[in-house]
Every structure is written in structure tokens, then in C-alpha cells.
């Protein structure tokens, strides 16, 4: 295998890993958008907070990593329930714009809660599989990266299966298409949104646990993930569940290749510029349909 091809392959695998992180977060955002009609700006902050829970369990209580992650997932479910039950459900009367402002308020609350509960010192979280690489010609990829990629793909596979093939998924899709009609038809929309917030929290937590070993666990851990996941949604369009996931992977791949081949400093900015320009030509995303505004 030629040197060049090896580099490309390695870059591609690494992009898939970052892509999985973005895709999981993006899936959380789109699930909230489809069920509660809110652009969830706090997805990253909730993920950051739950990753703090995982890290705190791991470092302070010396739990094994898998048990810490379970604690984080439990916290994510609990917080998701609380957010929906205490805030979103009670804000039915306010406009969707106001609900978005609520999620911006949530960002601030969790930004403040994290240092209050877990201290201001940056923590660190190890990888699931500490060492070991698979050689692919001249390229190599760590077992941990393969775990992350496959975890992302398997999770999304299960979710899409549930969404498309089961009664539960049908309830979610009905709620997404028209909430009040769904309620009239006997769909328990309250349960659906409750589950959606919990699920989004879990997806955010998992993406946080995946990205944490590459950096330190601070309040800004998920900033880049949040931004890229949102752009994934824009790129893929807000109308389908799989569009944002696709968009997130494209951003993961595009970003890494631009950073490697074009400029390590300006690569990411160029990626964002491309997205802005793309919006001019396809304002509703890759798979988006046109918004039809009814009077």
C-alpha cells in the first residue's frame, strides 16, 4: 500500500471516530427538535455535566470505568426527566423561540453547576481500551477508536430500527409530525418527550465520554462538539432523523482532511465557511425539504 493511501486511510478512520462523537450529539439534538420543536443548544452542556459525573465517579469513588459510565447514563436520564418535567412541559404556552432561549439558560445553569459540584480543577478520563493498535498497511488505528466507531454505529443502528420498525418508534414519529393530532390519536406524547429528553441526555453523555480522553474534562469540553453537531443538523437538514447524522459524519471527515491537507490553523474555519456557502445553495440541508409555512 502506498504511503499516501495509508495516510488517507488513517485520516479517514480518525474522522469516523470524531464523526461518531458529533453524530451522537447531533442525534440528540434532532430527537429533541422533532419531538419538542426546540433547537437544543444545551445538548453539549448537558453532555459536559454528565461527563463530569462519570469522571467524578471514576476519580473520587474509584469505580471502574464501565460503572462510572453507567452512573453518568443514570444521571443523564434523571436530568433529562427533570428538564422535561420541570421546565419544558410547563412552558407549553410560550413560543418556540422562547423555548430556545430556555435551552440557552440551561447552558448557563449547567456551566455554573459543574464547577460548584465538581470543583474548578480540570479532571481527566482514560480511554476504555488503554492501548493496542491494529495495523492497516501503513496506517494504524487504536482498538479504542474502533470501539468508539462501532459503538456509535451500533447505537444509531438500534435507534433507527426502533424509530422505523417498532410501535414505540411510530409514537415518536407521530409526535414529531404533529403533536396535538398525535395526542388526539391516543399517543402518549408526554411520555415520548420525556423519553426524548432522557435519550438526548444519554447520547450527549456518551459523546462526552468518547471525546474526554483526547483532552481534559473542563466546562468547555463539549463546546466544539455542540457547535459541530448543530452544523451537522444544518448540513443534513432538520426534517429527517438520519440527515443530521450524515451531516455530522461529513463534518468529521471534512474537518480532519482540511486540517491535514490545507491548514492546521485555518482548516476548521474553512470548514465552517463551506457550510455557510452551502446554505446559500441548499438552505434546507442535504436531505431537507422546503419549509412550508401555513398561515
Amino acid at each position: 500500500m502506498s504511503n499516501e493511501l495509508g495516510t488517507v486511510l488513517q485520516l479517514f478512520m480518525r474522522s469516523l471516530e470524531t464523526g461518531s462523537v458529533y453524530a451522537l450529539a447531533a442525534l440528540g439534538i434532532i430527537i429533541i427538535y422533532r419531538t419538542s420543536n426546540i433547537v437544543h443548544f444545551a445538548q453539549g452542556s448537558l453532555g459536559m455535566f454528565n461527563t463530569f459525573v462519570v469522571t467524578y465517579m471514576f476519580t473520587s469513588f474509584r469505580l471502574p470505568l464501565w460503572a462510572s459510565v453507567l452512573c453518568g447514563v443514570a444521571a443523564a436520564v434523571g436530568i433529562g426527566f427533570l428538564v422535561d418535567f420541570l421546565i419544558i412541559r410547563r412552558a407549553k404556552r410560550v413560543s418556540s423561540l422562547a423555548k430556545q432561549i430556555i435551552t440557552l439558560g440551561l447552558i448557563m445553569v449547567f456551566l455554573g453547576l459543574a464547577p460548584m459540584l465538581f470543583g474548578v480543577d480540570p479532571l481527566s478520563l482514560p480511554r476504555f481500551i488503554q492501548s493496542g493498535d491494529i495495523g492497516l498497511g501503513r496506517a494504524s488505528i487504536s482498538y479504542n477508536a474502533i470501539l468508539n466507531i462501532s459503538l456509535g454505529l451500533v447505537l444509531m443502528g438500534i435507534l433507527f430500527y426502533v424509530l422505523q420498525k417498532t410501535k414505540m418508534g411510530l409514537a415518536v414519529r407521530t409526535t414529531a409530525s404533529n403533536e396535538s393530532t398525535a395526542r388526539l390519536m391516543g399517543v402518549p406524547t408526554g411520555l415520548v418527550t420525556l423519553a426524548a429528553w432522557a435519550l438526548a441526555g444519554v447520547l450527549g453523555c456518551l459523546s462526552g465520554v468518547m471525546i474526554a480522553p483526547t483532552t481534559t474534562v473542563t466546562t468547555s469540553l463539549m463546546d466544539a462538539v455542540q457547535v459541530n453537531a448543530l452544523f451537522g443538523c444544518v448540513l443534513g437538514g432538520f426534517q429527517t432523523f438520519y440527515g443530521p447524522v450524515l451531516g455530522a459524519y461529513i463534518i468529521g471527515v471534512g474537518r480532519n482532511f482540511l486540517v491535514y491537507y490545507v491548514s492546521s490553523i485555518w482548516g476548521e474555519q474553512i470548514m465552517y465557511l463551506f457550510i455557510l456557502i452551502f446554505l446559500i445553495f441548499r438552505p434546507n440541508g442535504l436531505i431537507g425539504r422546503k419549509f412550508v409555512k401555513k398561515v
Partner: peptide, 22 residues
Amino acid sequence: AINGLPYIFNGLLIIVVIMFAP
């Protein structure tokens, strides 16, 4: 003495204002 107090204060205030005093 709470770390991150301004964030919590302002974040909660936004949510409360939106919900109860738009």
C-alpha cells in the same frame, strides 16, 4: 462562596422570566 454562581443565577433567572414573566 459557590463557584460558578453568576452563571447559575443568570441561567435560572432567564428560565424563570421566560416561564413566569415573559
